[in-house]
Design a protein around this nucleic acid. Structure first.
Length: 479
RNA sequence: GGCGCUAUCGUCUAACGGUUAGGACGGAGCCCUCUCAAGGCUCAAAUACGGGUUCGAUUCCCGUUAGCGCUACCA
């Protein structure tokens, strides 16, 4: 039974790189009928926050790719201690009594040397046990077997064979002096205990994998299969980070920006992975069927956002593609919350009539509010009366056109075909171009020049509203 | 600094050693057209650099450069 795991740490919102890792895990598992494990890596007491955990769940739920199992490392602490003790007993690990320091800032043992005191590795067992018993704080470190073997190697499903000299692997910490496990220990202990068969994660863990391979070996279990994903990077090439790039890298930004969850998933899939044919818009089923490690690239992918626009143009395009492909009923249902958020109370019948008219004119669900406002508000948003005047025409012409339209629309059937026939005939009778006829009407009823096709719009708006707005426009032109 | 990984249009990518280096987004233009879109067509745009191997390198090898990652009692 194939089992994959996704292991976010609740130290910020879910960012799109993490989301992509989850997505790749999900598709790989579904492709092979496996299980998706969500594991919360919350062993860093200092940095975990409940808000962050909420936002991670929010983000993952929005993706609509369900996990099968949920575990929290903070609830599994005995497991890690047990493994650390076992390694200690075996001699595969040792106690380090060096006082704590911030390794990110200090390099107490020199620039090219290890960040640990080599003398501690050689501490006699009895002395180690005695000092521990005396209550002296210590960290448990893994004893990298530099004498027993030259190098560690493993095969990565994406990057291929990798090898690293044991001489270049430091004695990493397993258990902190406060009794909490480090990432390396907790991750491996869980991968063993939860029987993970595949570890699919970001390439930032590629070099950590040598340590993990060593840990699996010391524990006497076969290592899972590894697949490291190229990173998502910012336009400046740096790894996406919450700190440097802010909310533009948060999954919730896409949700609030009006992305369809699946369009977002589709976009992320195409970053660093390719189906090898020319498909871009793909359904969940197609992605599941097509996903494989062979299609994964080895170089980082840039998410093309800017400070002004947080969304990659390709993501926006793909979202528009998915919007256009959606059945009207479903799109209408997706649109509703965004219209409501913009303050429009929407009636279902009206929304179903409007949706096809704006479907090809919006790129995000959020765009609907501005693209269709005149369908939902009683009073038009303020507009410049000069807009009513058509190209190569004057206010007099506009007024004349609107007056003719007013009387015509009062007696024409309000269906698109009848409206089109009547208005075209009227334009011909008046000797004006269709554009000169239609544009003033469009602006009068929509309050702007760019809008859905006129006759459908009139039909959906209804006679009463149209006559009222045209009347208002005529008064504006006269004043 | 040490170690590891990577390198095709601006961006995402395709190309069992032999292609006019393909597609997509974005950009420019044209067509369609009641506006805006959508759609169709066209154009500009790339193999980082230097050495090998080979009849032939985007592709294989080495080096250089650049970028990224790891190098924490973060994950």
């Amino acid at each position: 039974m194939l089992r994959v795991r996704f292991a976010p740490s609740p130290t910020g919102y879910l960012h799109i790189g993490s989301a992509r890792t989850y997505i790749f895990n999900w598709f790989y598992a579904r492709r092979h009928g496996g299980t998706v494990i969500l594991r919360i890596d919350d062993t860093d007491l200092e940095r975990n926050t409940p808000e962050s955990l909420d936002s991670i769940f929010d983000g993952l739920r929005w993706l609509d790719l369900a996990w099968d199992e949920l575990h929290r490392q903070s609830e599994r602490l005995p497991l890690y201690r047990q493994m650390a003790e076992a390694l200690l007993a075996k001699g595969a690990a040792y106690r380090d009594f060096t006082p704590a320091y911030d390794g990110a800032k200090e390099r107490p043992y020199g620039d090219s040397a290890w960040l640990f005191d080599p003398m501690m590795r050689a501490l006699p067992r009895e002395e180690s046990a005695r000092r521990a018993a005396a209550g002296e704080p210590f960290v448990i470190r893994f004893r990298v077997p530099r004498d027993a073997r030259e190098s560690v190697q493993f095969r990565d499903a994406v990057f291929g064979e990798s090898s690293k000299a044991t001489a270049d692997i430091e004695d990493f910490a397993l258990l902190r002096s406060n009794g909490m496990p480090t990432y390396h220990l907790a991750s491996c202990a869980d991968d063993i205990d939860l029987r993970a068969t595949h570890v699919i994660r970001g390439q930032d863990h590629l070099t950590n994998t040598f340590k993990h391979v060593l840990l699996f070996e010391a524990a006497g279990v076969p290592a899972p299969q590894f697949a490291h994903l190229p990173l998502l990077v910012a336009p400046d090439g740096a790894k996406l980070s919450k700190r440097r790039h802010g909310p533009v890298v948060s999954v919730t930004t896409y949700r609030d920006g009006g992305f369809l969850p699946h369009a977002f998933v589709n976009f992320l899939c195409l970053l660093g992975w390719s189906p090898k044919d020319d498909r871009e818009r793909m359904s969940r089923e197609e992605l599941t069927e097509a996903f494989s490690f062979e299609g994964i690239n080895r170089s980082n992918a840039v998410v093309n956002f800017t400070e002004q626009d947080p969304f990659d143009p390709k993501a926006v395009w793909l979202n528009a593609e998915h919007i256009r492909a959606l059945p009207v009923e479903e799109l209408a249902a997706r649109l509703e919350p965004y219209l409501a958020a913009a303050g429009y109370g929407v009636e279902r019948a009206r929304l179903l009539a409007v949706t096809p008219l704006i479907r090809e004119r919006i790129q995000t669900l959020r765009d609907a509010a501005s693209a269709a406002d005149f369908f939902f508000r009683e009073e038009l948003a303020p507009y410049d009366s000069a807009e009513l005047v058509p190209q190569k025409g004057d206010a007099k012409l506009a007024t004349a056109v609107l007056e003719r339209a007013l009387s015509l629309l009062a007696r024409t059937d309000f269906n698109r075909q009848a409206l089109e026939d009547a208005l075209r005939a009227e334009a011909a009778a008046m000797g004006v171009k269709t554009g000169q006829m239609f544009q003033p009407i469009r602006v009068a009823v929509c309050g702007r020049k760019a809008a859905p096709p006129l006759f459908e719009t009139l039909e959906v708006l209804g006679r009463e509203t149209c006559l009222k707005r045209i009347g208002q426009a005529i008064r504006r032109l006269r004043s």
